[in-house]
Structure formats: structure tokens, C-alpha cells
Design a protein around this nucleic acid. Structure first.
Length: 385
DNA sequence: CGCACCGGGTTCTGCCATCTGC
DNA sequence: GCAGATGGCAGAACCCGGTGCG
């Protein structure tokens, strides 16, 4: 905790709201600077697609002027377009002040119209809370552009504040928090209760598996899998059960896997996990492997379950086609990390220089491009001699 | 120097369903 | 019966380099 000077202040958050000078002129919920609104009354000529009843005409005008995709907005949250009081100008000015372009602002409102129902005070406060984790406004603008919903979906700043405090209390440091908010911003608009549920669930899993430090276990999983808190406990639970029932691991193995390299597996969709596990099983058995091989393979290289069955098959096939033995792949599964294209290309290059996989193994495939090219050069040079 | 081992970085929204409160 | 708030879902790998050892 001592390493969190910036976040510390956050816990006692009472930040003076720095209002932009222009926003002073804009009441929290303005009726716009435009003339009073007429509510439009479906006065369409027959034949035209009928616009939904009682949309707010001047709001529509405003949005159009701002470059908002009204059709999209209507599709997303039709109710917003019917509201008499909205704050699109204020929101736009606010975002502009943070460095968002017109285009970004229009994109945000098109994708999450409810944004225009937020008051300046609310936005200032929320921005301030996020700003305690992010370094720059520009970074935050890029997140909002990427995922407007994450920032705007909840109107509960108190909940956001509690979430941040909760995550800190788990022992996540400021770097973890930054990665978490940058990568999975939705985590922060979850209800505190939902986040707590997931953490408690993870702690329970640890205890069930005979672990002695549930808090550490949960923390490990979160910092290894930044998406975990936006998954449902049902999904995570089902995945753990699938692994448990399909593979005969000891509790210790399971515990180590889940908080280690296997943490990412937890957010696979349930069907995908089952499908991949089954097709992997079938593929291995068809290649003469045993159950023990399968289990060892997944322990050594859990991410293999992330690879779709078609991709995996093509990777294996192109390796086997070059005379590489399944046993070698089982021993060095990490070569499957690389794209089929990459593997194919490298195999071709190696063939050219007469590389003998039986003799020298397949480790050479598991290296960065730089290293691989250097290796290839050495091989070619020794061939020329 | 060359190699094997190991871990880390990047990455993830946009939609629908369901509740709740007015 | 509405709009707002919130939960949940599908989608599906690849690459790089530090380090320690012989």
C-alpha cells in the first residue's frame, strides 16, 4: 500500500470540482441553447418509415448538427431521444475540453446515447475518479472512444469510488489498477457487490482446493487475467468444473494452474472451452497419444485450449508433415504459440538449409523473429562451408 | 556466443436481457 | 409501462526478449 501515493488521496476523495468557465453558463440540465422544443408528432407522410412517436425534435436537430448517427442512437436507446431535457451540449463541451475531437464525441453519443443525460457535475466527478488511475486526459479519451459504455453506463459515482477502494484493498497496486481500467474498464462500473461476489467466489475455489491463502489466490488471478471481473461467476465456475471433470489433476496442480498460466482460460466461453477440450482430446488420441499426454500437455501449455480446433489441427498437421514427431510437440508445445503462417514459413526456411529436426529438435521454432533470422543465417553459413 | 527456459506484453466491445423504481 | 441501471454473453493467439548456463 505504501507504493500508492496517488491512489491514497483517492480514498478520502473530496476533490474540488474544477468547472470550465463555459460550463458555468450551462445549467446541469439545460433545455439547450436552442429555442424551446416542439415534440414531434409523427406527422409523416404515408409510405415513409414512421419515426417513433414523440421524439424531441430540437434534440434530434442538435444531434444531427453534432454529427451523431441518430439512427444508431435510436436503435440503441430510443428513450433518450424522447426526453425533454438532455445535456448534449454540455457533454460535448466537457469532452472537447478533455481533448476529444468532434468525431470522437459524435461516435460516443451515437454508441451510447444515454451519455447526454449526464450532468457536468457528474462528469467532472467521474472523470476525476478515473484520472486518479490514468495519467493523462488523452489516455482517458481514447478509452472512452473505445468503450463509451464503460464510462457512461452507470450514474453511481459513489459505487465507482467504492470499487476503486475495494480493488486497492485486495492488494492490487497502481500499475495493476491502471492495467485493469485500461484493459477492462467495465470492471469499474460493475456494482461493488458483483465484483465482491467474484472475488469471494475465487477465494472459495482456493479454499476448496486446499489452498491456504485465498486472498493472494484471488489477487493472482485478477492480475493475470484482467477480464475476470467482467465475467460471470457462472462462466468461471463452469470452466473450472469442465477442467476438473475432464482432467484428473490433483488439487495442487489445479490451484497452481488457475493462478498461473491457466488464469486466462477462465474467461473462455463455456461452449468454446468444452469444444476445444474435446477436439484436442480427439486429435491427440487419433495421433496415438494417451490421456496422460493430454493432461501433461495442458499443464505445460494451458493456452492450447485457447486455440480453436481448426487452427490447432492445421498447426499440428504442418509440423507433422515435415517429419516432426508428436512426442517432440508434446515436449515443446510452446511452438504452437506461433501462427500457422509463421510456423509454415519457418519450416520452409529450415528445410532449405537442410535442418534436421530429429537431431536438433524443434525449439528453434519458438523464438522471436530476430533470433530466428540470426539462427537461420548461421545455418546457411555453415552450409556454405 | 548460442541455446533453453521462462515469463511477460498486447488484448475487449457492443449488444441483449432482466431487474427496478417511478 | 417507461427508461434507467446493471448483468451477461460471444468472439477466440501471437510474439518478444531477459537470463543463466555450458
Amino acid at each position: 500500500m505504501t507504493a500508492l501515493p496517488g491512489l491514497r488521496t483517492l480514498l478520502g476523495f473530496h476533490r474540488s470540482l474544477t468547472l470550465q468557465c463555459r460550463s458555468v453558463l450551462i445549467p446541469t440540465f439545460s433545455i439547450h441553447d436552442c429555442p424551446p422544443r416542439k415534440l414531434c408528432c409523427t406527422s409523416t407522410k404515408s409510405g415513409e418509415p414512421k419515426p417513433p412517436p414523440t421524439e424531441n425534435e430540437s434534440l434530434l436537430e442538435n444531434l444531427n448538427l453534432m454529427g451523431v448517427d441518430v439512427t444508431k442512437a435510436r436503435q440503441r436507446q430510443p428513450g433518450v431521444l424522447r426526453k425533454a431535457f438532455t445535456n448534449e451540449q454540455g457533454v460535448a463541451q466537457f469532452l472537447e475540453g478533455k481533448g476529444a475531437s468532434r468525431k470522437i464525441i459524435a461516435g460516443i453519443i451515437s454508441r451510447y446515447p444515454r451519455a447526454i443525460t449526464r450532468s457536468i457535475e457528474h462528469l467532472e466527478q467521474r472523470w476525476g475518479l478515473w484520472k486518479n488511475i490514468f495519467k493523462t486526459d488523452a489516455e482517458m479519451v481514447s478509452i472512452l472512444d473505445r468503450s463509451p459504455e464503460s464510462f457512461f453506463r452507470s450514474s453511481d459515482n459513489g459505487n465507482l469510488e467504492k470499487n476503486i477502494a475495494f480493488l486497492i484493498s485486495l492488494g492490487l497496486n497502481s500499475k495493476d489498477l491502471h492495467r485493469l481500467l485500461a484493459t477492462a474498464p467495465r470492471t469499474f462500473s460493475n456494482s461493488l457487490e458483483l465484483n465482491k461476489q467474484m472475488v469471494e467466489f475465487l477465494e472459495d475455489i482456493c479454499t476448496e482446493l486446499g489452498g491456504t491463502n485465498p486472498e493472494q489466490f484471488a489477487k493472482n488471478i485478477i492480475s493475470r487475467n484482467l477480464y475476470i471481473l467482467i465475467r460471470s461467476t457462472k462462466r468461471v465456475k463452469t470452466n473450472i468444473n469442465t477442467l476438473k471433470t475432464s482432467l484428473k489433476w490433483s488439487d495442487e496442480e489445479m490451484l497452481a494452474l488457475l493462478q498461473g498460466r491457466g488464469a486466462d482460460l477462465l474467461d473462455l466461453s463455456n461452449e468454446y472451452m468444452k469444444k476445444n477440450l474435446n477436439s484436442l482430446k480427439q486429435k491427440l488420441f487419433s495421433l496415438g497419444c494417451r490421456k496422460a499426454d493430454l493432461e501433461k500437455l495442458i499443464v505445460n501449455y494451458p493456452m492450447i485450449l485457447y486455440i480453436g480446433s481448426d487452427t490447432l489441427s492445421s498447426k499440428l498437421d504442418c509440423l507433422l508433415k515435415e517429419g516432426i514427431k508428436m512426442q517432440q510437440i508434446l515436449e515443446t508445445p510452446k511452438v504452437l504459440d506461433y501462427s500457422t503462417q509463421n510456423i509454415t514459413g519457418r519450416l520452409e526456411e529450415l528445410k532449405k538449409v537442410g535442418y534436421d529436426f530429429k537431431k536438433y529438435g524443434i525449439n528453434v521454432l519458438d523464438s522471436s523473429k530476430k533470433r530466428f533470422d540470426a539462427k537461420l543465417e548461421r545455418l546457411a553459413a555453415s552450409l556454405a562451408k
